[in-house]
């Protein structure tokens, strides 16, 4: 499509402005948010294997969206609103459970609590799938769980943009502090940080932007795990460079994947399948490459 055609052809203009552009922006926000949140999660937990879906966030969102489809008729507002709400509920529950747990260090307790809460919501999704109308609602749940941006509109872009931009701004602004917070608690304290408070602020920013994009795109896995690794590998571990790099690479990765999802075959490939496929292949290649020397 040429700019000339865009100017003369009303239909083409509408297509680009009303369908492609919001979808492109949604893909960009999706990739940026998941990658930034992934970097923040990995650094806060000092663990390169966690991702934004960790701590019950993803399964919470999945449960919320399924509930919106089954119980509230599946309007975009119901699905997105409930997905975001339950994403936060997942985090809150994990956090509460971790505080109540009576053994292990803080990180271990959070990990275990996240696993337990995720399992709980995943069972809930199973129940909802069982209850769903197999012709109308079940395909919608399945499609949501596989992730995709075909439902992205200007309305959804406008709805999530403020949260995404605020979350990304907060994470980017605090990126040097992230280095400090990745160290032991006592060390971070001795460097003048307020580990508990700063971690809470960063976690909120990461979860809020993740919940926002997930509410529109469904479950798009692996972006938040793989992109931060790649950014660190290329640009070094210091989040001063690695975080902005992850944001840009993540945006690019999601836009490219979404383009492939849209155009590779006549129908649409669910985006989550594509990111998992490419992400996992990439991860395997990275694991077996010779200069792997990640955290011991």
């Amino acid at each position: 499509m040429t700019p000339g055609r865009l100017a003369s052809d009303e239909m083409a203009r509408r297509l680009v402005l009303n369908l492609r552009l919001p979808r492109l922006l949604a893909a960009l926000m999706l990739g940026m948010s998941l990658s930034a949140a992934g970097m923040v999660f990995q650094m806060l937990f000092g663990n390169p294997l966690v991702e934004p879906g960790f701590l019950g966030v993803s399964q919470g969102a999945a449960f919320g969206a399924s509930l919106g489809i089954v119980a509230l008729g599946g309007s975009a507002l119901a699905i997105q609103g409930l997905a975001a709400l339950f994403a936060f509920l997942g985090l809150g529950l994990s956090y509460f459970l971790a505080r109540r747990a009576r053994f292990g260090g803080w990180v271990l307790r959070l990990v275990l609590a996240g696993i337990a809460v995720s399992a709980l919501f995943s069972a809930g999704v199973g129940v909802l799938k069982y209850l769903a109308d197999p012709l109308r609602q079940l395909p919608e749940i399945t499609f949501w769980l596989l992730g995709g941006l075909s439902s992205a509109t200007w309305g959804s872009v406008r709805a999530i943009a403020p949260v995404v931009i605020a979350g990304l701004a907060a994470m980017t602004a605090m990126r040097w502090r992230l280095n400090v917070l990745s160290l032991d608690d006592a060390t971070a304290f001795s460097l003048g940080a307020a580990p508990a408070l700063e971690r809470a602020v960063l976690l909120t920013a990461a979860v809020a932007s993740t919940a926002a994009v997930v509410s529109v795109a469904g479950m798009v896995s692996w972006v938040g795990l793989i992109v931060p690794h790649f950014a660190r590998r290329v640009f070094g571990a210091d989040a001063r460079r690695a975080l902005p790099a992850a944001v840009l690479l993540g945006g690019l990765f999601a836009v490219i994947c979404d383009d492939i999802a849209r155009t590779a075959i006549a129908g649409e490939i669910p985006l989550g399948i594509l990111t998992s496929l490419i992400g996992a292949a990439f991860f395997i290649a990275m694991l077996t490459s010779r200069n792997v020397k990640d955290a011991k």
């Binding site: 650094m43 000092g46 003048g192 955290a295």
Partner: peptide, 22 residues
């Protein structure tokens, strides 16, 4: 917190460094 950070420094026994900082 910042006053403490400017007054007292800690070198922990064995520090976990999860990422490859220079």
């Amino acid at each position: 917190r910042r006053e403490i950070g400017r007054s007292l420094a800690l070198v922990p026994q064995s520090e976990r460094i999860p990422f490859q900082y220079s």
